[in-house]
Design a protein around this nucleic acid. Sequence first.
DNA 1: GTTTTTTGTGCAATCGTTTGTATTTTTGTA
DNA 2: TACAAAAATACAAACGATTGCACAAAAAAC
Lengths: 341, 341
Amino acid sequence: MKRTTIIDIARSLGITPSTVSRALAGNLRVSESTRKRVQEKALEMGYQPNIVASSLRRGKSDTIGMLVPRINRHFFSHVISAVEEILNPAGYNLLICQSHEKSELENQALQVLLKNRVAGIIMSHAMETVDFEMARKATEERVPVVQFDRVNKEVPGPRIVNDNFSGAYMAVKHLIRGGYSRIAHLTGSLGVNVYSERHRGYRYAMEEASLDFDELVFEGAITRETGYEKALQLVKQHRVDAFFCAGDFASVGTIQAIHDCGLRVPEDMGVVGFANEPFAGFITPQLTTVEQNAYDMGHRAANALIRVIGGQIMTGMDQEEVVPVRLLVRESSMRATVNNK
Amino acid sequence: MKRTTIIDIARSLGITPSTVSRALAGNLRVSESTRKRVQEKALEMGYQPNIVASSLRRGKSDTIGMLVPRINRHFFSHVISAVEEILNPAGYNLLICQSHEKSELENQALQVLLKNRVAGIIMSHAMETVDFEMARKATEERVPVVQFDRVNKEVPGPRIVNDNFSGAYMAVKHLIRGGYSRIAHLTGSLGVNVYSERHRGYRYAMEEASLDFDELVFEGAITRETGYEKALQLVKQHRVDAFFCAGDFASVGTIQAIHDCGLRVPEDMGVVGFANEPFAGFITPQLTTVEQNAYDMGHRAANALIRVIGGQIMTGMDQEEVVPVRLLVRESSMRATVNNK
DNA sequence: GTTTTTTGTGCAATCGTTTGTATTTTTGTA
DNA sequence: TACAAAAATACAAACGATTGCACAAAAAAC
């Protein structure tokens, strides 16, 4: 059986669809009595408005596109959740796509979102992405784009980023205070803003303390496995006494490597991670890391998008919002009686 | 500037929109030459088909609704990811909603999905939900529903569930083999299929070994906090020597409680969890737990939905698919030299 | 009691595609 | 050259809601 439409309701009440439409929309130009009748009838017939038709006619949809590298990453899934928390009450729904860290899939996903005529896009780029043309095109087609975490300035619109610089700076400074000095930095591609900023923070802290860091920075060591390998190599060479990893997974691999070399954390070597993955507080030793507030970020991104859609921010004027981070000092870096700040 | 439509393309080529539509759809009734011309023009004008209009006309959308209690749960986010892996290549997109474990929000979300005329729904119920009317209504409105993990037989259509019974049975049997006998079971609401099945497995194993379990089953102890409290109480009363928790979070709380009482895991008390949360292999002691394959489940759910949409499964005929689970034996339960099976 | 204003509805076009049917053009054949 | 068959394209009506405008009825003003 067909779904009931406003036409069905109209017919069964002997009025026109336009009146039904207005009645359901709560338009004041329709009398109280018919509004009641329409609402009752709609309920009785189990009417569900057809958003598709409505969107087409209104020329705008209530769907927001969300594009992330991977839904199943702790950080991203929490951002999504936070975005939804803001956008749902505001009457929007989320069409979610993953890029799987591939530029090609990212572009495809953007196309899909545009084809679906989303009212706006909240996205974080794939690591691989260097060409941001597609995202720019979206804004040119009047679809506002809000970037978060992995952002690029070539794309107009608000950007919400973590305070990666300060987080890294605090982390490294904390290690230095703890008496570590040959601090290696394992990180991802420095072409990605997230990692370049953390790298900047690392350098700043090292330079400030007049410590040498040439040949102590290693790109492409961000997973547990690659972290393990690089750390194993460095520890064996006796070149370092601490690690600042740009991610917690690499930190886990690093700790493993240190243990496998018969050394202790933090007594022999300190380790600090980044992200505060859920396991960071559980592992042995508990991992000192930089906490990034995914909820805060999601809320900000959603609110920024709402402002852009509402015309409160001009498309041209792009702005960056920085979400504060926190250094969580735990066992993996507490060699001595160290001051937490 | 307005987005280009097939009408624009038609005009600029001196043909009709219908021909353009057919050309882009690859319809064989349009000549090779015009098809080429249309495709080129479309590319040149940056044409993006309007899926909204298309959906309206075709009476069906390419969007699948996905409804989960919480996106940011490890298990659910992985299922989502797996579903997307299957559905994306098949030309579908995912509209994702969360119920936040609330029946009311679950129903609202279902309404939203129906209003958006999704082609199908893949869902897992909120713990709270006891009234499944809304999900039934969806199938009555010809929107196929596939349930996974938290399912209910009142709702027609495929159900994909973990082998909770066997998982629990294996877990408890493993504890018994290890020499534990006063095994408590901390779990969630037994009104939820997931927990009732695990409970059944627990009972079966206990009965099989002629062990007493009256007053050893506790509902409402599923979080880290509630798990901690209940465990603390039981340990202090010297009533138990092992715990089978229906979730890993409760297991973490339990281990904490045992430690806080000055006892050791697994020497004094054994602990087995359920889910294999990402931290399970990292914590100390490493947690023995039942691994549920979220990817497998997602793939099956997506494929089931595709089959229903394709008419390969009658709506009436409901079927349950059981995803196998695996017991991962780790430190938290290995008191003696135990056989892993 | 007439005119003006207000209020409530109806009419009809529109959003951008799709698709059944009609029409034109092309091709093949006698 | 004519004519049927086949191929390519055009026409027009949907899909279901929204909305500017017209219009009737009721209320208010004179």
